[in-house]
Design a protein around this nucleic acid. Structure first.
Lengths: 213, 213
DNA sequence: CCATCGAATGCTGTATACAAAACACAGTCT
DNA sequence: AGACTGTGTTTTGTATACAGCATTCGATGG
């Protein structure tokens, strides 16, 4: 049972996150308040409150006197955010402790699907997302969980790099497998380090993809 | 020279953060929009946008149909946030690399002042804040810096625990010194671990202080 | 034909107005 | 006496109106 949200601000917020995730709002796009509010069926006030909300999470950016935009793809942002996510996921693992042991098989199951040949970049990104989601699912720290979720949603627009050629999918699969193996054998600290390395290595891949576009 | 902010939303935001930091707005307090907007000299619209903004950072919380409040002190929040901060500061150190070496003497200088006998809890908290600020000042990762700053500002209301008796000030000083020593000798990874331990140990102190109040 | 200046248009930033929900308090009923 | 209901007041949530800035497109001059 979903929580009944009572104010438009939060409903609009969730809807915008949805639109940002599925690409209906893409990087660099300008968010014209009048058009958007009509599309959402609300007035500009709750829309602007939702946008102000998303601004501080970095999902949209506000340029004074020029309104709101979806941030453009930026190699610098990838370089900065990926290690942060890696570090936070590592912390999540360490805080999961023994509860993380049982994750290994589930992680492996998802991981195998990552390399299926017929997948679209979007599908692959979705599997990867769920893999990382499962990875931290035993973490009891709520603040960490929301922080991770929010930070990860900021790198959602970079999911396009999962196209063949751009990402060495087999390398990712192997790293995932190694992390799951370490986890399964109780080497949580080592797994945490491997997660960080995994994200740091991904920087090269994604920045190269950005440059080549 | 401060950046000339052009919209009221951001100005109000900064002002509210100021009020939250210096205690003019204390934990549990209700934020009546009409009164606040009059006090700030703006209308409710930019105020609400600023509040919506602060909501997603956790500095205020929104209760539907009941407005905005300053979050109450909560032991759970301390347990959750402190390790996150510790982990992020550790990452900041590791990303600082060799640039962190030169920090040691400055850190020690501040650290000595932490134990001066005549300080108020507020002054001690301020010195501690500046110590940690300096600790991560060589980190080149902007995203990490803002994330750290924001997360740290959420635990600002817990600064009252710096009163004598509540916090073992000497223990903090010793931990700071150890971190600076590791840093000075180039053992950055060990320093990062020590920072995390430092924050984890502080959980006990601060939760005890909350309970005893 | 190109460049530069200016007016028009569209959009943002802010204020205000209105409706609906929550709260407080008093009066009434059990 | 205690609890409940009803009314008045306060406060939030949303919509709309208005002013001012930015951008764009066209006109005019070189």
């Amino acid at each position: 049972m979903a929580i009944q949200r009572q104010n438009l601000r939060d409903q609009v917020r969730e809807e915008l996150i949805e639109w940002l995730s599925d690409g209906r709002l893409g990087p660099g796009q300008r968010l014209e308040e009048e058009r958007l509010s009509r599309a959402l069926g609300v007035s500009r006030t709750p829309l602007r409150e939702a946008l102000a909300n998303l601004t501080s999470e970095g999902l949209v950016e506000a340029i004074p006197r020029r309104g709101f935009r979806v941030p453009k793809l930026s190699a610098e942002r990838v370089r900065d955010l990926f290690p942060v996510i890696g570090s936070l996921e590592g912390l999540a693992l360490r805080l999961s402790g023994a509860r993380a042991l049982e994750l290994a098989s589930g992680l492996d199951g998802l991981n195998e699907r990552l390399v299926l040949p017929h997948l679209s970049p979007r599908q692959r990104a979705e599997i990867d997302r769920r893999w990382h989601e499962m990875l931290v699912s035993r973490n009891p720290n709520r603040e960490l969980a929301t922080l991770l979720e929010r930070t990860r949603s900021r790198v959602r627009p970079y999911a396009g790099s999962w196209e063949r050629g751009a990402t060495d999918i087999e390398a990712s699969r192997a790293e995932h497998a190694e992390i799951a193996r370490l986890l399964g054998s109780g080497q949580v600290d080592e797994a945490a380090e491997a997660v960080l390395r995994h994200w740091v290595r991904a920087i090269r891949v994604v920045t190269a993809w950005i440059a080549q576009k």
